[in-house]
C-alpha cells in the first residue's frame, strides 16, 4: 500500500480540517455568556436528604403515605401520575382493602363505555392506573393558562437535581427580590407566572401549591408544615419514579459483596497459577 500516498493524502485532508478550524477560531466571535436575570438569581436546589438516599437507603413508608396524601389532596388536582397503578400503593404500606377503598373513592373516575356504547366513567379498581385530572393535553392547557402540568410519575428522574429540586421548587415561592427589579427592570414575573429562584428561568407557571400549615391533616400526628409536606411529597415522588429502589439496593449489596469475595479468590487463583513464572 502506497507508503507515500497515505501520508500525503492524509496530510492534505488534515490540513483542510485544521485550516477550517483555525478560521473558525479567528473569525467566529467568542462572546462571554450574557448576564441575565436567570444567570444571577437562579439558585441550585437546597441540600435535602431522604431516607432512600445512599447505597443502603430504604423508604420511610410512613412518609410515603403522607406524601401520597399530599399528592392526592393537592397535586392531583392538576398533575397526573399515569404510570402508577392503585395496586402499587400496597408497596408503600396500604392494605388490599385500603387500596380498594382509595381506588373507589378517587375523585376522577376511569373512562369507559356504557351498554349503549356512550362514553361514561366508572369507579377505579386496584388494577387501574391513577386517572389523570384532564382528559387530554389540550384540556390540561386550557385549564392552566396554556401551561401543561407535567406528569409526576418520573418527575424526580426527569429533572436535574431530582427530589431536592422538586422539594426546593415547592418551598421556593417568594416575592421577586427588590435587587432583581433594580438590576433587571424587565424581569418582573409576567402575569400568570410566579417568581421561584429554583426554577430555571425564575418564573414558573405553577401557582404555589402548598400555602398554609395544616393544608392536609396527617393521621399519624405529624405536623403538616409547608416544608414537611414538600418533603413528604418529594419522598413519595422518589418512590413513584423508582418503585424498585429497595430491591435494587438490597440486590446491589449482595452482588457487590459476593463479587468482592469472588474477585479476591480469582486474584488468589491468578497468583497461584503464575507463582514461579516471572513476568
Amino acid at each position: 500500500m502506497g507508503r507515500l500516498a497515505v501520508p500525503f493524502v492524509g496530510f492534505i485532508v488534515g490540513l483542510g480540517f485544521i485550516l477550517a478550524l483555525l478560521c473558525a477560531v479567528f473569525f467566529t466571535p467568542h462572546d462571554a455568556p450574557e448576564v441575565t436575570a436567570a444567570s444571577v438569581f437562579h439558585r441550585e436546589p437546597k441540600e435535602i436528604h431522604y431516607a432512600s438516599d445512599g447505597p443502603l437507603g430504604r423508604f420511610d413508608r410512613q412518609q410515603l403515605q403522607r406524601g401520597f396524601q399530599v399528592y392526592k389532596e393537592v397535586c392531583s388536582a392538576c398533575h397526573s401520575l399515569r404510570l402508577v397503578a392503585f395496586r402499587d400503593l400496597e408497596e408503600i404500606g396500604f392494605s388490599k382493602p385500603e387500596v380498594k377503598a382509595i381506588a373507589k373513592g378517587w375523585a376522577v373516575e376511569v373512562p369507559t363505555v356504557d351498554d349503549k356504547g356512550e362514553a361514561t366513567t366508572r369507579k377505579a379498581l386496584p388494577s387501574d392506573y391513577i386517572p389523570s385530572p384532564y382528559a387530554n393535553e389540550t384540556a390540561a392547557r386550557a385549564s392552566n393558562n396554556n401551561a401543561l402540568p407535567p406528569d409526576l410519575s418520573l418527575i424526580v428522574k426527569a429533572r436535574e437535581g431530582g427530589a431536592p429540586y422538586v422539594d426546593s421548587i415547592l418551598t421556593g415561592f417568594q416575592n421577586p427580590p427588590a435587587e432583581l427589579l433594580k438590576r433587571f427592570p424587565d424581569s418582573a414575573p409576567p402575569p400568570g407566572l410566579h417568581y421561584n429562584p429554583y426554577f430555571a428561568n425564575l418564573n414558573i407557571a405553577m401557582p404555589p401549591p402548598l400555602v398554609a400549615e395544616g393544608q392536609v391533616s396527617y393521621s399519624d400526628g405529624t405536623k403538616a408544615t409547608v416544608p414537611q409536606m414538600a418533603s413528604d411529597v418529594s419522598a413519595f415522588l422518589i418512590w413513584t419514579a423508582e418503585p424498585k429502589l429497595e430491591a435494587r439496593h438490597r440486590a446491589g449489596v449482595v452482588a457487590v459483596i459476593f463479587l468482592l469475595i469472588a474477585t479476591g479468590l480469582a486474584f488468589a487463583a491468578y497468583r497461584n497459577i503464575w507463582s514461579g513464572m516471572k513476568h
Binding site: 446491589g252 449489596v253 452482588a255 463479587l259 491468578y270 497459577i273 503464575w274 513464572m277
Partner: peptide, 23 residues
Amino acid sequence: YYTAKDGFGLGVFLVIFSILMFF
C-alpha cells in the same frame, strides 16, 4: 495463565459494573 488473569480482571470489571448499575 491468562484465563486466570482475565478471570480476575472480569471480577474487577463486574464489581465496578455492579456499583454503577445498583447504586
